[in-house]
Structures are given as C-alpha cells and as structure tokens.
Design a protein around this nucleic acid. Structure first.
Lengths: 195, 195
DNA sequence: AACATTAGCGGACACATGTCCGCTTGGCAA
DNA sequence: TTGCCAAGCGGACATGTGTCCGCTAATGTT
C-alpha cells in the first residue's frame, strides 16, 4: 500500500459525514486502546472514542472486524507477501515462511492472527477478505503443481490445521513450540509416497 | 438417568453435607439444562438448581469443569479405551481410532470435546485430569517404541494439532472434513524418512 | 447441650457483549 | 433558505461471566 492509494483508510463511499468521522474516531481510539492492551473491550473503546455502544457495533459488528480494520495495513502486507514468496522460493519453503510470518503477527499484534482466522472462516465468500484465502491458495497451488504438496488440501483446511497458532500461549516456549508444530504441519503436506 | 443408578456420582470426601447436596443439585440441573441446549448459561443452571451464583462457581470454577463433571462417565470411558486400543492394534491405528472417538464426542455431546481440551491445557499438572493426557501419551509412546511415530511430539502438542476438532462447524461436511484432517495429522506423525 | 470455628452460602457487583429504538441531524429538493 | 426524512446516533436494556464478602449454619470440642 502506498500513499498514492488515495485518502485515508477506513473511508467508505456513501457514508454520511458524521458517520465517517465517527468511524475515524473509533479506529483512532481502537489503535490506542489495543496498543495498550490487546484485549481492550469494545465498550472501553467506544467510551474512549466518545461514542455510544450502538454506533460502535454499527460500524464494526464484531471485535474481529474492528481488529482487522485497525490492522488493515498489516493484513495487506501479508496478502501481498504470498506471490513474492511463491516466485522466489520452492513451494514448501514459501508456505512455511508465510505461516511463520502469520505466526509472528499472532505474537506481536495481540489478537490479529486470531481475528484473521475468525474473519476468514466466517467470510470465506466475502470479497473483502477472500484475498487472504487467496494468498494461501496461491501458496498451496504452487506446491501442488511442483508435486511437493499433496493435492487433497485446501486453504480452509490449512487454516484449521494451523489453528493452534492463536491458541498457543505466549511464554518463553512460544517460539520453539510454534516452530515445531509448524514443522509437523508442513510434514503432513508432503505427498504420500504412494500417491 | 434412573433412580437405581446407585451412589450418585460427584461425591467428594470431606465435603460438608449441605455442600455435597448442592453439588448434586448443580449436576442434576446441569444435566437437564445441557441436554436441552448445549450452551445453557452458568447463570441459568444455577437458577434451575435453586442456588446462588457464588455457589455455582465455587463448585465449578469454569464452564469446562462443569461440563466435564457432568460427562465424567464418558471421559472415563475415553481414558480407559486407550490401553485397550494400544493392546489390540498397531500404534498409528490406535491413535487414529482414539481421536476418532474423541471427535465423535465433539459432535454428539455439545461442548464435551472442547471442554476436554481446555481442561487439559489448564490442568496438565492436575491429578484429576492428567489421566487424559496420560491416555494420549500412552498411545504416542506405543508408536514411538514401534518406530511408527516420530519421537519429537508429546501429548500437549498433539492436542494443539487436533484443536480443529472443537472449532470445525458441524454441518453435512463435518464427517468428511474431520476425517480428512485427522488423516493429515496422522501423516505428520510418521517418522521422517531420514530419522 | 452449648459453643466456637469456619466451611459454605448466595446475592449484589463490576464489567462484558450485543440489541433495540426514540431522538437528532446531515444532505438533498424545492 | 427552508424543510423534510431517512441515515445515523447513543444510551438503556437484556443477558452473560466471574468475584467478593457479610451472613448462616454444620461440625468438632468440651
């Protein structure tokens, strides 16, 4: 995403002026609040933004939607990284690196990875977020074509498999555990010898 | 549940008479309420049992603990199935069957599989529930000794990997998806060729 | 039996989520 | 400009979770 992409993020066509302003206010407040604590409540964010509960939920129906909007930029980067990885590395490596990256969001940006997951599951059909599924599909397909990834897995299943990323607790073991489990998952992607 | 079932489950040593009674009341109410709807609230169960919130939470600190207590019998069966499976089948088959069984609880008994998971994660050290972890460890060890399961995985990691079991939604695809994903996980358990 | 100790009770609280709906006001049409 | 009216507002509500703490009464002791 570059500066020439247009006006500030979060703008929506056909949105009344006051509504647009409130949207910005919410995003600003959410950015602040989430930076302080990853699990700031919707309520507290609304309060911080100086708006009502109703307004909050009208703009962002779920916690996930809000988190995703706040981190839109990161999400976009993640999506855009997929084609680059595919182009520059063997498919299995590319896959692994992409998920490493996803995992690191889980650590750094509180809640982001989890939000990604829920949103993707709920809105697989939704145009706005389908891009993330596309990114994974791209990575998988590259491997399938190269014969280094089994045919019978799709992006949605992949997401279910790496679901541990947003449940694993973040302690000093985090890195080792995450890495190890990703290893295991990657192994499971190899084509069967008999295939 | 019939009157002739014998001594009621859930008895605890050193529990005052009134406390024991309340515990039974809660369990009875929970059984009823959960049968009607898998996500009956703690509040509503307490009300149904005719006791206060505080009492509820003192007896069962979390929703999971309650669900687990209600389904104690099923849990026990699950745990007891592990040694039998190990004795009668090659390790990888035994593992797969055990998790198939766990998965089916997820489908039939609303919340049970999920409760198992949380409880196990939270109380790995706890004597009461460690038995479930033991069951998995048993299955894994059998495979490790036979050389059909890689060395570098433990029960906790195994649980993280099959976490999708309690997130996957139950629709007409449930069976196929679950089975397929379990296939994948089982594949990831194979020793590496180079190991 | 009377008493002291303290386990256990249970409801009020603090706080969360998500919904509903009467009031306000931005933006267009005349 | 004025005025209309639907888009939008925002707080009250309904409901849920989990905690706290003053009161009650079960149990061991004398």
């Amino acid at each position: 995403m570059t500066a020439s992409d247009g006006p500030a993020q979060g703008e929506r066509p056909g949105l009344r002026a006051d509504a647009a302003l409130n949207r910005q206010r919410i995003l600003a407040a959410a950015r602040e609040a989430l930076a302080l604590s990853g699990d700031a409540s919707m309520q507290s964010i609304a309060k911080r933004a100086g708006i009502g509960q109703g307004t909050m939920y009208r703009h962002f129906a779920t916690r996930e939607a809000l988190i995703l909007a706040v981190h839109r930029k990161d999400v976009q980067e993640l999506v855009e990284a997929a084609p680059k990885l595919v182009a520059s590395r063997p498919a299995p490596i590319a896959l692994r690196e992409w998920f490493d990256r996803l995992a690191s969001y889980g650590r750094v940006k509180h809640g982001l990875a989890g939000a990604l997951y829920s949103v993707m599951r709920e809105t697989l059909a939704d145009e706005g977020y389908a891009s993330i599924v596309d990114a994974i599909t791209l990575l998988l397909n590259a491997g399938k074509q190269a014969g280094t990834v089994r045919q019978d897995i799709d992006a949605e299943e992949m997401l279910l498999l790496v679901g541990f990323l947003w449940r694993i607790e973040y302690d000093e073991q985090w890195e080792a555990r995450t890495s190890h489990l990703l290893d295991l998952v990657m192994d499971s992607l190899r084509p069967k010898a008999t295939e």
